[in-house]
Structures are given as structure tokens and as C-alpha cells.
Design a protein around this nucleic acid. Sequence first.
DNA 1: ATGCCTGCGGTTCGCAGA
Length: 268
Amino acid sequence: MKIATWNINGVRARIDNLVAWLNESRPDIVCLQEIKSQDEAFPRAEIEALGYHVETHGQKGFNGVAILSKLRFDEVTPRLAGDDADDHSRFIEGVFSVRDGKGRKTALRVVSLYLPNGNPVGTEKFAYKLGWMQRLERWATDRLTLEEPLVMAGDYNVIPEPIDARYPENWTGDALFQPETRQAFRRLSALGLTDAIRAVTDEPLYTFWDYQAGAWQKNNGIRIDHLMLSPEAADRLTGASVEKHVRAWEKPSDHVPAVVELALLPAA
DNA sequence: ATGCCTGCGGTTCGCAGA
């Protein structure tokens, strides 16, 4: 089973790219971020025509997340618990019925998350980012007790290590690379979550290249889109990759898809 | 040092992004 995450930077502006990529890559489940669309304006017909179920948690103008799935949703939950005053659409959780290679049935839980950027450091925006990360840690702690395959996929807006930036020295003052930010990300690992890309390679890989200053042409990128796996998902990891070529397409998002392959099948 | 692009909302510029 192939599960992907992609910050699409406006799903209505990017629908042609999205359809082309779905046809090419044929993922089973796709987590989208920054759909920048209200739910009723989401271009669901084009995606449903390819055989996907669509669940969205959007808002006007910015943010917004969605999950596309060839499997039927057993459950859908928008919003990250822990702050009723938080009105940003940054989190949606879906549950699916799957079976492993031995035919054993289990629930597969998939999250599409868009973690706050947090810039500039030292403002309420940075405090919001750290608070959101603390809420995510609490949520993950709770869900890990279920001992299910869980994929927490999305735009974390976190550069975990220096190797995850082409020029790490350029990011020292940035919210994406602050010690507190990196520490909060490491706390997720300490809960038992596995960074799928880093489980398969130590090579430098990037998922974002700024539109400005020729960042793509100079390969001035950062790795900030991650798929974090519970032990039950990590045990079934058979591959992980970044679909870098999509950044060279016409009218691209500034992010590219990241993908994991798990040894799981739809529950039939 | 600053802006460089891009999408969106709602008008022809401001905000947000990273």
C-alpha cells in the first residue's frame, strides 16, 4: 500500500498537476496540505473520477488539509484536540480497514497535518507553533496506545537535522530550525515514531524549494514534509521516497510529494 | 539589507508562506 503526503499550495490552482501525479504515481492514500480552499469549493469531482474517496477540512484563503483514499473511510476526524480556540484547519484523521500479508485484519490510521510555520521567532506565531507541537505529542501519545499501524504525514515545517537543508547556516534564525522546534520533533521520535525517509536513507533529500531566488535551479532545498510511523507501521515499511521530479513540472507547488510503501492491503 | 515568487481574497494591493 502506497501512502503519500504533498503540500499542494492551493488545490484549485494545482488540480491539473494533482490529477497528472495521481495518474502517474497511483497512491492508495494521499494526505494534502495547504489546499487553500473551503470544503464546498474543493475540486472533488476530478479526484473522485479517478476512484478516490475525498475528505476535506478546509477554510477560506489559506491552510486546509485533506485525505484522498482508494479505501473507504471507516472514520474521519478533523481538528487536533487540545485547544478549542484554534480555528486553523491543519489536521484531519482517517481510519481504514486493512489486512497484512498473513491476512490478519487491522485498522490503519492516517493523519494529514499542516504544522504552523512559526515565523518570526519570538512572536505569538512561534508560541503557537510550539503549542501545536505539544498538542500533537499528546495526541500521538494517546493514539500509540492503540498499537495500530499509524501514519502521521504532512508538512511539519521542521528541518530535523543539518543534513535536511542544503545550506543549514541560512536557517539558524528561522522557526523551522530552532532548537526548540527540533527538540519537539525529536520528542515525537522518542515516543516511538519513525521518520520513514530517514529509515531508508542517510542521503540529503529535500521536499521544498522556495519559488524565489532560483532556489530550485540551485537545489537550495529543505526537507520539511515527513511521514512518521508507529512501530506497527514501521515494521511493515518496504520503501520510502521523495518524488522530486514533480518540482520541475509547469506551475509546480513549492513542495513535492513524499511517499511510503507499507506491506498492507485493503481489507477486501 | 531587502526582495526575489505564488495563491488567494477581493480588488489592482495586502497577507501568508518558509
